[in-house]
Design a protein around this nucleic acid. Structure first.
Length: 880
RNA sequence: GGGCAGUUAGCUCAGCUGGUAGAGCGCUCCGUUUACACCGGAGUGGUCAUAGGUUCGAAUCCUAUACUGCCCACCA
C-alpha cells in the first residue's frame, strides 16, 4: 500500500502495466473476471454477462499511424473500458486495411521505384507476395502503436482485410449481389491515361492550368434565315442615324432605331460621339433564337480586320444573349450562310461528332421552346439530329448558356446522360490511341490537336465558327503519375446498384436504430445518401480482391460502326458480343469453372470490402451469434459517407440488420499550425517523443478534454504539459492518501456510507463524489467525453485535492503552532478513521471514473488501494 | 459551385433545453517547502466575427454578410 517517491514516471509505469494487461489476456472477452481465468470461446458465449462489441476501423497499413490517426483508438478504448466496468463482456476487434489504390500507390512509389523497378516487370503473383510482405511488416508496427496507446483490443483477433476468411466473405457477397441483380457490368466513362494505357481513379488525377482556344461554334438550322437575307438586301452598306442608349464606364454601347423601328447595334466606342448621333454603315446582323435581331453598324473606331474586331466586342457584350451570333455581310456573300442556330462554346471541337444532345439550364427561359424536342441541325455540311434537354449541371451564365453533351468524352456529360437516357448510347469518336476514328469522316486517323486545326478552317468556311477565344484559361486533367493529359473515354466496368439498400440505411438513421453522434452529421449523411449514383466497384489494380468473374475466352472492347463501345469475347477463335447474362460467356463464382476460363483482371474497390468489415470479421471468428449487431462504431467524420454509410447498406443486404447501434464521429486532429495533421503537410507530432516526454495518459487526455464529437482539435505542447501535471497531481494525491493510511496504526479500510458519517467535511466530499459520478455517467452515456473529462479534472483537482485533502489534514495529524510548537488540535481516533475511509473511498471512485480515459496511471494506483467486495484486482474489471 | 462545421480572454478551447461570461497555458502579486514548485491563494484579461430580427432578457434562437476549415463536384 504505497507508491514510490518522486514525480510520476509514465515510462516505467506504462510498460509494466501494459505487459500485465497483455500477459493476463485481460483484453479478451474470454477473460472471466470473477474466476480470473481465460474461458473457452464456447464458455464465453454461454456467459450471462451482456455482450458489448466494437469493431475497430482498420487503418491503412502501408505506413505508421501518426498521432492524429491514433486519436480514434483513445475513444474506442474509453468506451470499451467503460463497458467492462459496467460488467459487460467486451469484444474490441482490431484490424488493418490493405487500402487497395493508395496501398498499391505507396508500394510502387516508396518501394519499387526506389529500387528502380517497375510494376509491369514483375509477375502479378510475385508482386502480390512482395506487397504482402511489405504490409505485414507495417502491420506489426501499427499494432504495436495501438497497444502502446492503451487500446484494450483483442489482439489475438487482429485481422487483415486480405485474410483468406475475409476474402471468402467479401467474394461471397459479390456473388450474392450479382445473383440478386445489384451488381452488373456496364460501360462507363473513365479517366484514360494514354501513356500508361489504363484507367485511373479520380483521386489520381490532378489539374493543370492551361491556355486552350475556346471555340464558339454554331449548330446551324438547316433552313436559311429568310429574315437575315431580307435585312441584308435592305441595309447592307447603308448609313443609319442613331443615338446612345446605354453605356458603362469604359465603353459606350450605342443603340438606336432606324426610321423603320428596327433596332441597331453599335459597339466598342471609346468616347461618346458628338451629339449622341452617328452615321454608321451597316455591316452585319446579329441574329437571335427568339426571332429578335439587330443590325450591326461599323463603328468609327474599327480599323483593320473588321470581322475579328466586331466579333470580339460583340461576344463580350452578347455572350449572355441566347444563341445570338453575328453574321457579317462583308465576310461572305453566300446566302446559305445566313442561317440561325445554337451557338455553343467548347474547348474540344473534335468531340462535336460524338454529341448526342444540346443542354440548357432549367432556370434559363431563353431556350424553353426547344426543351424536350429533337432538333435537326447542320454541322460542316452534315445533317444530324440532337436532343435538346435541360439539366441543372448547365450554367446559364457561362458562355452562351448552352452545353454540347458528349457522354463518351466528358465526365460531366456522362453524368448528364445518366439523368437523361435519351442521350444514350454514347458515341465514342476517339480511340484508345487518342486518334479520331472513322465516325469523324475526313478527320479519321488524325490526332486531337491536328484535327482541331483542320476543323477550325472548315468550320469557318461552312459558317459554323462564330469566334475563337485564344486566351481562354482552363484546367486540364493530367495523370498524377505519368503527367499525361487524361482523356475521358468509355470503358467497361462493374457497377453496384444501391436500390433497396440505400433506403434501408436511410431508414436506420431516421428511425434511430443507428444513432449518429453528433446529430448534425445526420444532415451530411442524408445529403450523401440521397445523391448516390451507381457505384463503380472495379479497379484496375493488382492489390486487392480479384473479381470472382470468369470469362470463357479473351474479352476485349471495340468501337462499332455507330461509335458505340462494345465488349466482345473470343471463344475458340470465334468473336461474339459479350453477353454478361450468358453463362457460356461469363460466370460469377469463386471457383475457376474449368480449363480455358480466364479470370477478370480487376480488383474490387477497397470500400467494397471495408464496407463489410463488421460481419466479415465476426463471421471469421464465429462470433456473429453473440456480438452482432455491434454496440458502437467510432470513425473520423470524413469517412461518414464513404465507409460508415456503406457498412449500413452492406450489412442490410447481407443480414437485414444494423451493423452498430451508435455511430460516434470524431473530429480531425490538427497540427499546431491549425491545419489538418498529415504527413504531406509536415505538421506531424512525433508520437514516441511525446509519449516519452508527457506520458501516454497525457496524450489521451488531450484527445478528450473539452472536446466535442465531430469537432476538430489540436494537439499542442501546452495541453500535453497541462495533463502531465494533472497526472502528477493524481499521483501525489494518491501518495498522500496511502501514506496516511500506512502510518495509521490499527487502521483497516471499510467503505463509508453517507448516513454513517459524522464530520461535515466528509459529508460534503461524499456528496460531491455522488454528484460527480452521476454527471460523468450521464456524460459518457451521451458520448460527451469532453464534459466527462472536464468534470473529472475540476472535481479531482480543485474539489478533492485543493479543498478536501487540505481540510482533512486537521483530522489526520496533530497541528502545532509554527513558532511556539504548541499543540493547536489533536484529531480523535474516530475522526481519523472516518477521514481515512472517506479519503480512500473518494480516491477509489476518482480512479475508477478516470480509468477509461487515463488507464495506465489509474491501474498503477488501483493496485495499491484496499479492495472491498465488487472490486477486482484490476481496475479494468472493477464495477463502475 | 454543392454540402457540413467553425469564428468566445494574448494562445488552445468549453459554455449541453436563452437568465448578470468559463477552463488550461501565459502574465502580475502573495504564500507554502513532511502529497505535489509538474504546488497553493489572489488577480489581470473578452463590445462572445459583423449587421439586422425574435424576446422582459441572446454568446446561446432566426436572417444576411465576411472570413476559416473539412468533404464532394469541377465547369462545357
Amino acid at each position: 500500500m504505497s507508491l514510490p517517491n518522486g514525480p510520476y514516471n509514465p515510462q516505467e509505469t506504462e510498460n509494466e502495466i501494459l505487459n500485465f494487461w497483455l500477459e493476463n489476456k485481460l483484453y479478451k472477452p474470454e477473460y472471466n473476471p470473477s474466476e480470473d481465468r481465460i474461458m473457452s470461446t464456447e464458455e464465453m458465449k454461454a456467459d450471462v454477462r451482456e455482450a458489448w462489441a466494437l469493431i475497430c476501423p482498420p487503418p491503412n497499413a502501408y505506413a505508421r499511424p501518426h498521432i492524429g490517426n491514433i486519436s480514434g483508438y483513445a475513444y474506442q478504448d474509453a468506451m470499451a473500458r467503460y463497458a467492462r466496468m459496467q460488467g459487460k463482456k467486451v469484444l474490441v476487434l482490431p484490424g488493418k486495411d490493405h487500402a487497395g489504390l493508395e496501398g498499391e500507390g505507396v508500394f510502387v512509389r516508396e518501394v519499387l521505384e526506389k529500387q528502380g523497378r517497375n510494376k509491369f516487370d514483375i509477375k502479378r503473383k510475385d508482386f502480390y507476395a512482395e506487397m504482402m510482405d511489405f504490409f505485414m511488416k507495417n502491420i506489426d508496427i501499427a499494432r504495436n502503436d495501438e497497444k502502446t496507446i492503451g487500446l484494450s483490443a483483442d489482439f489475438d483477433r487482429d485481422t487483415f482485410t486480405l485474410d483468406p476468411a475475409i476474402v471468402e466473405t467479401v467474394l461471397d457477397t459479390f456473388v450474392e449481389m450479382y445473383n440478386d441483380g445489384k451488381i452488373y457490368k456496364g460501360v462507363r466513362i473513365v479517366n484514360w491515361d494514354p501513356k500508361a494505357r489504363t484507367a485511373v481513379a479520380d483521386n489520381q488525377v490532378e489539374f493543370k492550368e492551361s491556355q486552350t482556344p475556346f471555340f464558339y461554334f454554331k449548330y446551324s438550322f438547316p433552313e436559311p434565315e429568310t429574315k437575315a437575307i431580307e435585312l441584308r438586301r435592305e441595309y447592307e452598306g447603308k448609313g443609319v442615324l442613331w443615338k446612345v442608349q446605354e453605356s458603362d464606364e469604359k465603353t459606350y454601347y450605342l443603340m438606336g432605331e432606324t426610321h423603320k423601328g428596327i433596332k441597331i447595334l453599335g459597339v466598342g466606342y471609346d468616347k461618346v460621339p458628338a451629339g449622341n448621333e452617328v452615321n454608321g454603315e451597316v455591316i452585319g446582323i446579329q441574329m437571335r433564337l427568339d426571332g429578335d435581331f439587330r443590325l450591326v453598324v461599323k463603328g468609327i473606331d474599327f480599323e483593320g480586320d473588321i470581322q475579328s474586331e466586331v466579333n470580339k466586342v460583340t461576344l463580350e457584350l452578347f455572350s449572355k444573349i441566347a444563341g445570338s451570333h453575328i453574321i457579317l455581310f462583308a465576310n461572305n456573300h453566300d446566302e446559305k450562310l445566313y442561317t440561325n442556330g445554337f451557338v455553343i462554346g467548347t474547348v474540344r471541337p473534335e468531340t462535336i461528332f460524338a454529341d448526342t444532345a444540346i443542354a440548357c439550364d432549367p432556370k434559363d427561359a431563353r431556350y424553353k421552346q426547344y426543351v424536350g424536342k429533337k432538333i435537326d441541325v447542320e454541322f460542316l455540311g452534315e445533317k444530324k439530329t440532337l436532343h435538346f434537354i435541360e439539366d441543372y449541371a448547365v450554367d446559364k451564365d457561362f458562355g452562351t448558356g448552352l452545353l454540347k453533351v458528349t457522354p463518351a468524352h466528358a465526365v460531366e456529360d456522362w453524368e448528364i446522360a445518366q439523368r437523361h437516357t435519351e442521350c444514350l448510347p454514347a458515341i465514342q469518336v476517339i480511340g484508345y490511341d487518342l486518334r479520331l476514328n472513322k465516325l469523324t469522316g475526313k478527320y479519321n486517323g488524325m490526332g486531337i490537336k491536328e484535327a482541331r486545326r483542320a476543323m477550325q478552317e472548315d468550320m469557318l468556311a461552312n459558317g459554323n465558327l462564330v469566334y475563337v477565344d485564344e486566351n481562354y484559361q482552363n484546367k486540364i486533367k493530367i495523370a498524377e503519375r505519368t503527367k499525361a493529359a487524361i482523356e475521358p473515354l468509355l470503358s467497361s466496368q462493374w457497377y453496384l446498384k444501391y436500390d433497396g439498400i440505400r433506403e434501408a440505411a436511410i431508414e436506420m438513421v431516421k428511425s434511430n436504430q443507428v444513432t449518429i453522434h453528433p446529430d448534425n452529421m445526420v444532415k451530411k449523411f442524408d445529403h450523401w445518401m440521397e445523391n448516390l449514383r451507381d457505384w463503380a466497384i472495379s479497379r484496375s489494380l493488382w492489390w486487392g480482391y480479384r473479381l470472382p468473374v470468369w470469362y470463357a475466352g479473351k474479352v476485349f472492347e471495340e468501337i462499332d460502326d455507330n461509335g458505340h463501345v462494345k465488349e466482345f469475347i473470343e471463344i475458340n477463335g470465334k468473336k461474339e458480343e459479350l453477353d454478361y447474362k450468358n453463362s457460356n460467356h461469363l460466370r460469377v463464382q469463386k471457383q475457376n469453372p474449368g480449363k480455358g476460363w480466364i479470370q477478370d483482371e480487376n480488383v474490387l474497390d477497397t470500400w467494397f470490402s471495408s464496407g463489410q468489415w463488421v460481419y466479415a470479421t465476426l463471421t471469421k471468428y464465429n462470433l456473429m451469434d453473440k456480438f452482432f449487431p455491434t454496440s458502437v462504431l467510432v470513425s473520423a467524420h470524413d469517412i461518414l459517407e464513404n465507409w460508415d454509410s456503406r457498412m449500413m447498406m452492406f450489412t442490410y443486404f447481407k443480414h437485414k440488420q444494423i451493423p452498430f447501434k451508435d455511430l460516434f464521429l470524431t473530429g480531425l486532429v490538427l497540427g499546431t499550425d491549425g491545419q489538418k495533421m498529415s504527413k504531406s503537410k509536415g505538421n506531424l507530432i512525433d508520437m514516441d517523443k511525446v509519449r516519452t516526454e508527457f506520458g501516454t495518459d497525457s496524450v489521451r487526455m488531450t484527445y478528450f478534454y473539452q472536446n466535442s464529437a465531430g469537432a476538430s482539435y489540436s494537439v499542442t505542447p501546452d495541453k500535453l504539459k497541462n495533463f502531465k501535471q494533472f497526472n502528477n497531481k493524481i499521483w501525489n494525491a494518491a501518495k498522500f492518501v496511502l501514506m496516511n493510511a500506512e502510518n495509521a496504526t490499527d487502521y483497516t479500510y471499510s467503505q463509508p456510507k453517507l448516513e454513517g458519517l459524522k464530520l461535515e467535511n466528509s459529508k460534503t466530499i461524499f456528496n460531491h463524489i455522488i454528484n460527480t459520478k452521476a454527471a460523468v455517467t450521464k456524460n459518457i452515456n451521451n458520448f460527451e467525453f469532453g464534459y466527462a473529462t472536464d468534470t473529472l479534472y475540476q472535481e479531482f483537482w480543485h474539489t478533492f485535492c485543493d479543498l478536501y485533502i487540505e481540510s482533512s489534514k486537521q483530522y489526520l495529524n496533530t497541528i502545532k503552532d509554527k513558532e511556539s510548537g504548541e499543540v493547536i488540535s489533536e484529531p480523535s481516533l474516530d475522526d481519523k478513521q472516518e477521514t481515512l475511509n472517506v479519503l480512500i473511498y473518494s480516491l477509489k471512485e476518482f480512479i475508477k471514473m478516470l480509468h477509461p480515459f487515463i488507464p495506465f496511471i489509474t491501474e498503477k494506483i488501483w493496485r495499491e488501494l484496499p479492495k472491498v467486495e465488487g472490486d477486482h484486482k484490476t481496475v479494468m474489471y472493477s464495477r463502475w
